[in-house]
């Protein structure tokens, strides 16, 4: 049958390696606008290490499939175990993985650490198919909500009788963030599970009904970006889109007030 198939497979594998290396090193990540640069670093480190393994193993696969084809005359090598070799690649892999693990756990701990005491509080409540954004206002306290009060005019069931509720600022699908100041976002949902995803900020948190989950991060650059829903939440999932506006701290109160008026 000739040696065509092995050659083809080797060439295909080399082509895969070349194309994958070329395209994986493009800047695919959405431009980073928050302080979570460590996540980007972890992604790049993963790319470098797994990329090296990818290139190495695939080149071996390509070489072996081309080089060791049956010639119809000689026999294969009778070579089927080598404890030292097997132990060393097991241990080396384990070592690399433990390094990843160590870094991953540290990073995870940092992401989930307590927010700074002066972090600005924001509440984001998902519903089919919109993001309700709420700021506590001058008193710094979010008013009480009661889902029994929810209605067309009051989608998150804000209890207007609560004194803290009066100055709460409510926005729909518009999230204003101060530049260079930590924000802690309380993520909630009225109905099904949504996922609060800010692609430019490396932030993603599922919004669960019956539960409030807090995350925090610091926006770093001003500009307008997008909020996406990352968890399938029904037929309008694709259009559950919001906007993030990062403004300098000095202009934040005014921007928020202007937005609230609209």
């Amino acid at each position: 049958m000739g040696r065509l198939q092995g050659l083809l497979f080797a060439l295909a594998t080399v082509a895969l390696v070349v194309l994958a290396t070329f395209y994986f090193t493009r800047p695919w990540l959405p431009p980073l606008k928050s302080d979570r640069i460590a996540i980007d670093h972890a992604i790049w480190l993963s790319l470098v290490v797994t990329g090296a393994v990818f290139i190495l193993t695939n080149l071996l696969l390509a070489y072996f499939s081309w080089r060791y084809q049956d010639d119809g005359r000689t026999r294969a090598a009778y070579w089927h175990h080598n404890p030292r070799l097997e132990w060393s690649w097991t241990l080396v892999t384990a070592l690399i993985m433990c390094t990843f693990l160590f870094k991953a756990l540290n990073l995870w701990a940092a992401v989930n650490a307590e927010p700074p005491a002066d972090a600005m509080l924001i509440e984001v409540t998902g519903q089919q198919f919109a993001w309700n954004v709420r700021y506590p206002g001058p008193d710094g306290m979010l008013g009480r909500t009661d889902h029994l009060l929810a209605s067309q005019e009051n989608p998150i069931g804000l209890d207007k009788s609560d004194p803290h509720a009066a100055d709460d600022v409510l926005l729909l699908n518009q999230l204003y963030l101060p530049q260079d100041r930590a924000v802690r976002v309380q993520v909630r949902s009225m109905d099904v599970i949504h996922s609060f995803f800010l692609p430019n900020f490396r932030v993603k948190q599922d919004a669960l009904p019956g539960m409030t989950v807090q995350i925090w991060f610091t926006p770093k650059e001003t500009g307008d970006f997008e909020i996406a829903c990352a968890e399938h939440c029904g037929l309008g999932h694709y259009r559950m889109r919001g906007q993030v506006h990062v403004v300098p701290v000095a202009q934040f109160d005014k921007a928020l007030a202007d937005a609230a008026v609209q």
């Binding site: 049958m1 198939q5 092995g6 497979f9 696969l61 072996f64 499939s65 060791y68 084809q69 049956d70 010639d71 000689t74 026999r75 294969a76 090598a77 070579w79």
Partner: peptide, 8 residues
């Protein structure tokens, strides 16, 4: 695969 006599 190393040192084999592969039939594709």
């Amino acid at each position: 695969l190393r040192g084999a006599r592969i039939r594709f």
